[in-house]
Amino acid sequence: MAVTAAMVKELRESTGAGMMDCKNALTEANGDMEKAVEVLREKGLAKAAKKAGRIAAEGLVDTFVDGNIASIVEVNSETDFVAKNDLFKNYVQEVAKQAAKTTAEDIDSFLGEESLFVSGSTVNEVLTSKISVIGENLKIRRFKKVVVENGVVASYIHMGGKIGVLVELESDVVNEAVVECGRNLAMQIAAVSPLHVDRSEVSEDYIEKERAILKEQAKNENPDKPDSIIDKMIIGRLNKQLKEICLLDQPYVKDGDLTVAKYVEQVAKEQSANIKVKAFTRFETGEGIEKKSENFAEEVARQMQG
């Protein structure tokens, strides 16, 4: 029996499963709607779909480093309790390893590629299986793969997976001291959360916008001062702000007498190396996700009824 778009739509609405999962189930069931529902339930897809509407704002960030190749991923869960579960932690590490091998450029392509850990299944199908086993909505939110051709990549995980950082260093010397430098910078980035490596990455639009805001602030605070004085005041304030958002300008957290730039120079001199901070990636679990506030007693009652 031919599977029509209307049949796929009907099955999707009744089970909440994905469109391709519904189409495949109908094909397997030869168009029998009840049998297709059973197929979805047997594969855990219908159960997982019911959980898909829940907000997954907890979870873990993890990294994986293999020589000059590294990855960082964020996998979300509904509760912090699940995020501390070894089954979930091991799964997130698998996702990080998958990301280090991937050729995908976006999350949809990543989810569609073949899993390295479950033969014959896609990354998304493995995710669906984990949702069924763990019993919460899970989401692979984002990933990044980095390759450093000449240098090192270092990683750091903060607060048990709440924050993860990768730092890419270009260096003509690769040894443990240079790797340690990268780890120290990753710790700095986790703690202080800069937005850029240095001022060259800050757009002129951002600077002009901030300058205008700072000028209005200064005028409101000093209404009697002429524009020439105001302009000098905002130069200092803008420089201070840029130091806060640019990694190399920040005070080094392990030695407040040094900036990060001076610390990197110091390591480079000690190792007779040319070291440059090429880039960094910082993921924080749940950032930007609106968390749903629920009454715990109501949630338990709802689970009992379901």
Results as ranks from 00 to 15, higher is better:
Q98A: 03
K278C: 01
S203D: 02
G112I: 03
P226R: 14
A2F: 11
R54P: 04
T259A: 06
V75S: 06
G182F: 01
K9T: 00
P226E: 05
S228D: 13
K97M: 14
D249V: 01
G67M: 10
E78K: 12
K23T: 11
S200V: 00
A191K: 05
Y156K: 02
D227Y: 10
G236N: 08
L26A: 05
A273K: 06
T285Y: 01
A279I: 02
V253W: 03
L45Y: 09
E287W: 02
L138T: 08
N30G: 05
F283K: 09
R54L: 09
N220I: 07
I157H: 00
Y156A: 04
T128G: 11
A186N: 00
V92M: 08
V179A: 00
N239M: 06
V123I: 15
F117V: 09
E28G: 06
M233L: 14
L60F: 01
G112M: 06
S293G: 15
Q217T: 15
D32V: 09
R211H: 02
K209P: 08
F296L: 03
K219Q: 15
H196V: 09
T63Y: 04
K254R: 06
V153S: 05
S119Y: 09
E298D: 15
I235M: 05
E149C: 12
S293P: 00
E136T: 12
G44L: 04
S115G: 10
M304S: 08
D231K: 07
E113L: 11
V82T: 13
V118M: 11
Q271T: 03
L238M: 14
N124P: 05
F280T: 00
K232F: 08
D66W: 04
P194H: 03
P223Y: 13
R54T: 04
A99V: 08
A52Q: 10
E201N: 01
E125H: 03
G288K: 11
G53K: 10
A212G: 12
L185C: 01
E28D: 09
D106Y: 04
E210N: 10
A70K: 11
T122Q: 07
K219T: 08
V147G: 03
T4L: 09
A29M: 10
G182Q: 11
P226F: 08
L214T: 12
G286I: 03
D249T: 05
E299V: 13
E299A: 10
V165F: 04
T63G: 02
E114G: 07
V133D: 08
H158S: 09
A177P: 03
C22I: 00
V277W: 00
V153Y: 01
R183D: 07
K292I: 12
A191Y: 07
N239C: 12
E168T: 15
E270A: 14
T15N: 10
K97Q: 14
G236M: 08
G182A: 07
N76V: 07
A100L: 03
S155P: 06
V148C: 09
T103A: 06
V165Y: 05
A6T: 12
A104S: 15
E58Y: 02
V147R: 07
N150E: 15
R282I: 12
L214M: 14
I72D: 01
Q98C: 06
S203R: 13
A46F: 04
A268S: 14
L214K: 13
K291C: 04
N85F: 13
K35P: 11
G112S: 14
T4I: 09
F280I: 08
M20Q: 11
I131N: 01
A154G: 08
V37Y: 00
G112L: 01
L11T: 07
N150K: 14
V126M: 05
K225N: 11
I213G: 13
